[in-house]
Simulated scan of single mutants.
Amino acid sequence: MKAPYLITKEEVLKIYKPVNPQTHKGIQGHAVIIGGSYGKIGAAVLASKSCLKSGCGLVTAFVPKCGYQILQISIPEVMVLTDENANFITNIHLPLVPQAIGFGPGIGKELGTQKALFEFLRVNKAPLVLDADALNIISENLSWLELVPENTILTPHPKELERLIGKWNSEAEKFQKTVSFSEKYKVIFVMKGAPTHIINKNEIYENTTGNAALATAGSGDVLTGIITSLLAQGYEPKYAAKLGVFLHGLTADIALPKTGYECFIASDIIENLGKAFLELGNVPIL
């Protein structure tokens, strides 16, 4: 395996586009987060909030009916659409054309949700991030990946990756199988881990930010929101993935002296996103 390219601050600054002083919310991108099921609405909350807090002008969450009040109360800035089903997603109708969609946090694997994912993939044309149970469903239906837009971003943790590409006997074999999968289906992998790697066809990138504090529930949901936000703002998928993982990790590096490893939770990633962006702009953090 060739040595990966490092995702450093220097590299990320070549990608990062500072906000235009004349911008307005209508041109900062409209993202949709499709997520949540009974008992896992928090995943949709985390992804939607991180999406908004990463610079997206407008965010709409699509959740089962049981998530309506939770979303409206916990993030008043996010708009909410609901499925006809109370407890899980069964039928996705979007009365808008978003610039990007994040699909998967907390959706579960109910048969109705699997059908809804298939029908969605059949008609969707928007840039896409697939995460969590969306990946688990697809791992049992790999042919569905023929339906996704080229350079769709998949964000598996190690177990989800194994379900997609099969077991491996060494790190070298894991990367080899992921590269082959990426080339075959024309998808970009964000391989979450310590460190996180991005696989884009035969190119391998290694993130240089982050620490063990990120090993906490909901951390991946937040990453999905960040990357979806960057896609909606017009970043190319390969750049959205790189900038997204760099910022995500940087929040943990910034917060660690105050929280320690044990006390850091996914909401702390969102709380420190502003400081992470300021660091990219070389603005002193007070």
Rank of each mutant, 00 (worst) to 15 (best):
A3E: 15
Y5C: 06
Y5N: 09
I7S: 01
K9W: 00
E10W: 06
E10C: 02
E10G: 02
E11C: 04
V12C: 13
K14L: 00
K17A: 05
K25V: 05
I27M: 08
G35D: 03
Y38C: 00
Y38V: 12
A43K: 13
V45S: 08
S50P: 01
C51I: 02
C51T: 05
L52C: 09
K53D: 01
V59M: 06
V59Y: 07
V63E: 08
C66N: 14
G67I: 04
I70T: 14
I70F: 07
I73H: 12
I75W: 04
E77Y: 04
T82S: 11
T82C: 11
E84I: 02
F88N: 06
I89C: 05
I89G: 01
I92T: 10
L94V: 04
Q99H: 13
A100E: 11
I101V: 14
G106A: 11
K109V: 09
L111F: 14
T113V: 02
A116G: 15
A116R: 12
A116E: 14
L117I: 14
L117E: 12
F118Q: 15
F118A: 12
E119N: 15
L121D: 15
N124P: 10
K125V: 09
K125R: 15
A126R: 04
P127D: 09
L128Q: 14
V129G: 12
V129C: 10
V129T: 09
V129M: 02
D133H: 00
N136E: 01
I138H: 08
I138K: 10
E140R: 03
E140D: 13
W144N: 10
E146S: 07
E146K: 12
P149M: 05
P149I: 00
H157L: 00
E162S: 01
E162V: 01
R163L: 01
G166E: 13
N169H: 12
N169L: 08
S170Q: 07
F175C: 07
V179A: 05
V179G: 03
Y185N: 13
Y185T: 01
Y185E: 09
I188A: 11
F189C: 11
M191R: 09
P195K: 02
T196R: 04
H197K: 08
H197Y: 15
N200T: 01
N202I: 01
N207R: 04
T208G: 13
A212K: 15
A213T: 02
A213Q: 07
L214P: 09
L214N: 12
A215R: 06
A215P: 07
G218C: 10
S219L: 00
G220V: 03
V222A: 12
T228D: 09
Q233A: 12
Y235L: 05
E236T: 14
Y239F: 11
L243F: 08
G244Y: 06
H248I: 03
H248G: 06
G249Y: 10
L250T: 11
A252L: 00
L256Y: 15
Y261A: 05
F264C: 02
I269D: 10
G274D: 15
L278T: 03
N282L: 01
P284N: 10
P284Y: 06
